[in-house]
């Protein structure tokens, strides 16, 4: 049975699509048949991040409305085996998504894939609700700043009250916290919330900490999921997160400024 993972945040611009692309690609690299579904109807971005924008013919809404079948709409990634993208429609809005339609498409996808990664739009309105409704797991993406953390808190509340699992009294959605754009240096200077601060407020199991990195912007603009940039810190951090998602134990990297800084902080030197 396929696992449905929603990548969500509440707040916009924190890195949901970057994360969806990286995690989805990472799962496929690990040999899992994976599809990434763009739920941001009207503000399609995933195709750009994945570098397949020129190959979009049919989209998610076409499939819901039976104007195309899944095979016509799914775009196969050229770099990674077993990775597919289901793009959003750019000409429609979120009302094009219906619970029944989304359920039908997800059920069809579940027959062919191990993982379905749902890239949620920002906000707490219909699009975001549709993206999280059928989820088995959620990756809550948050930046280390107060408004992003509060919005994440709000969306975690939604996961436990507005999802199918909550409504039907099933086992709750497995929640993972992914902190993006983390800068240990700015944490140390007191400008940024630390991992501990965020954990204290959200109390969700930490999946990964992605450092603020030039590699992310470069990857986005070139249409390469950042996880494929194996030399970059962000790429390595995403790889760790994927490994943890698959049950591996990985130490957290990139959360200390440098080894010396850590020791001097602990021993007050």
């Amino acid at each position: 049975m396929a696992r449905i993972i929603v990548v969500t945040s509440g707040k916009g611009g924190v890195g949901k699509t970057t994360t969806s692309a990286a995690i989805g690609t990472g799962l496929a690299l690990a040999g899992k048949k994976t599809v990434i579904v763009d739920f941001d109807i009207g503000l399609r971005n995933l195709d750009l991040i994945m570098g397949c924008e020129r190959r979009v013919v049919y989209d998610f809404v076409n499939v819901i409305n039976d104007e195309a079948n899944l095979n016509q709409a799914l775009i196969k990634d050229k770099r990674v085996e077993d990775l597919y993208i289901l793009p959003a429609s750019q000409t429609r809005d979120k009302d094009a998504l219906t619970k029944e339609g989304v359920e039908k498409v997800l059920n069809d996808l579940a027959e062919r894939f191990d993982y379905i990664v749902c890239d949620s739009p920002a906000g707490i309105e219909k699009g975001a609700m549709m993206a999280l409704y059928f989820a088995d797991e959620a990756i809550i993406t948050s930046n280390p700043e107060v408004s992003s953390v509060r919005d994440s808190d709000r969306i975690i509340g939604m996961l436990s009250s507005k999802s199918r699992r909550a409504e039907q009294g099933l086992e709750p959605i497995v929640e993972h916290l992914l902190i993006t754009r983390y800068s240990p240096k700015r944490v140390n200077s007191g400008d940024m919330l630390s991992v501990d601060d965020i954990n204290d407020i959200l109390a969700v199991k930490l999946l990964g900490v992605i450092p603020e990195s030039q590699a992310v912007l470069k990857a986005s603009n070139s249409g390469e999921p950042v996880i494929l940039d194996k030399e970059s810190d962000a790429g390595m951090a995403y790889q760790d997160a994927v490994d943890r998602l698959l049950g591996e134990n990985r130490d957290f990297r990139f959360i200390q400024e440098e080894k010396k800084g850590l020791l001097s902080r602990i021993f007050g030197g």
């Binding site: 808190d153 709000r154 509340g157 436990s160």
Partner: peptide
């Protein structure tokens, strides 16, 4: 039982 989240 459990955390009461923002907005709840």
């Amino acid at each position: 039982h459990g955390q009461l989240r923002s907005g709840q």
